[in-house]
Design a protein around this nucleic acid. Structure first.
Lengths: 205, 205
DNA sequence: ATCTTTTTTAATCATTTGATTAATTTATTT
DNA sequence: AAATAAATTAATCAAATGATTAAAAAAGAT
């Protein structure tokens, strides 16, 4: 009944999930074919429905896990009462840039599917409270109050500086004449720069 | 043979194109159904193929026009030899934010389809030379030289600050408890702020 | 008015695609 | 080893979907 788990990711179920993650994340729900996933996983198409019932059910699982993957680890950084805003920004930037180098399709996937499905997926994942009630957001508010600016601006700016290059990487690489390695090198540089920039923004004028 | 053009957008061909723009831009190529487009246009499905041969041909036209819509008007601002970097940034931010308020789905659509089709669509549209050879980019390079930083960083930052909030608007509105009108008000505020922020970034540290 | 061309419609086709079924193979239990 | 359960496969189904066709309607030309 139970599959032996000596190789953790070698069960059929795991092979399907991993293939689904690759295909869904790269092509999006609508463009992904269940046959693509089956082929990527090296399994018979029927097994996909045998293990996950439907394309949609499988997608929901992947979507959940992808969002989790996106916010995991952020909580401790954002909650830390002993670090400055600049410290947090640098840690967040560093962690996310590393993660995005490994999963470059993740943000565009999430943002696209989020727009397509006005579900409360974000709600469900508790992103809102994670951020809005964090020490980080309080520090943002403090900084914003002095500038008489909506703190959401600073939050958007930080996210933008971290995530946008990955969302727009084909265009960036084209305009800047960059190869894959050049782009990654640029992103590595940003780990330190972003915190500096955000600090400059917060203190601007 | 020729349709009279008294009402410019009332010809069947135009109705289809406009409907296609709406549906493609909102749902992307893969999720858009030719029947959706026909219904949105209020025409018989066969007319879509009669006028445009195929879904793909119609899409290519819309894609071209959408990219054009994205870069039109930027050229003069970027080329102007008599304005400062800050002036240009402010003008670009203002123009793009206005445009994005009217076409909020445009950037995610372009970025998604650009990633899906590694064609040289960007090449074809001449975005690269438009930017790389502009007075604007020269000013970016000058600023970057002093900071010993790749000028692409500043380009990415400016694009990010302008475009990202629209790409991530569902998440932003959720986290910030914002209604549509609140979000637009925030974007209006950014018109002025972005140039200030970019200036602060360029001069940072 | 008649003829020709263009536009529009309803019906249908062929393919793709998500899903199911029945049979076969493999693993587990007794 | 026999019996039972789980996993896998090939074949097939039904619905969706892009596209075509033949006929009808509308517009334009003679």
């Amino acid at each position: 009944m139970k599959k032996q788990k000596k190789e953790v990711d070698s069960t059929t179920e795991e092979k399907i999930k991993e293939a689904a993650r690759v295909v869904f994340t790269r092509k999006g729900y609508a463009a992904a074919r269940t046959r693509d996933i089956a082929e990527e996983a090296g399994i018979n198409l029927a097994l996909l429905n045998y293990y996950f019932r439907s394309k949609e059910k499988l997608f929901d699982i992947i979507m959940m896990e992808n969002i989790q993957r996106f916010i995991v680890g952020a909580k401790e950084i954002l909650a830390d009462e002993d670090t400055s805003l600049k410290d947090k920004t640098e840690k967040i930037a560093s962690r996310y840039i590393d993660m995005l180098i490994l999963n470059p399709d993740l943000p565009l996937f999430i943002l696209s599917e989020l727009r397509a499905n006005p579900d409360q997926l974000v709600d469900k994942m508790g992103v809102k409270t994670l951020i809005a009630k964090s020490n980080y957001f309080q520090q943002l508010k403090d900084a914003a109050k002095m500038q008489k600016v909506n703190p959401m601006h600073y939050f958007m700016n930080t996210m933008a500086l971290i995530v946008f290059p990955f969302v727009a990487s084909p265009m960036i690489m084209n305009i800047g004449n960059l190869k894959q390695a050049d782009f990654i090198a640029l992103m590595q540089e940003r780990k330190k720069l972003i915190a500096k920039w955000v600090e400059a923004i917060v203190k601007a004028k």
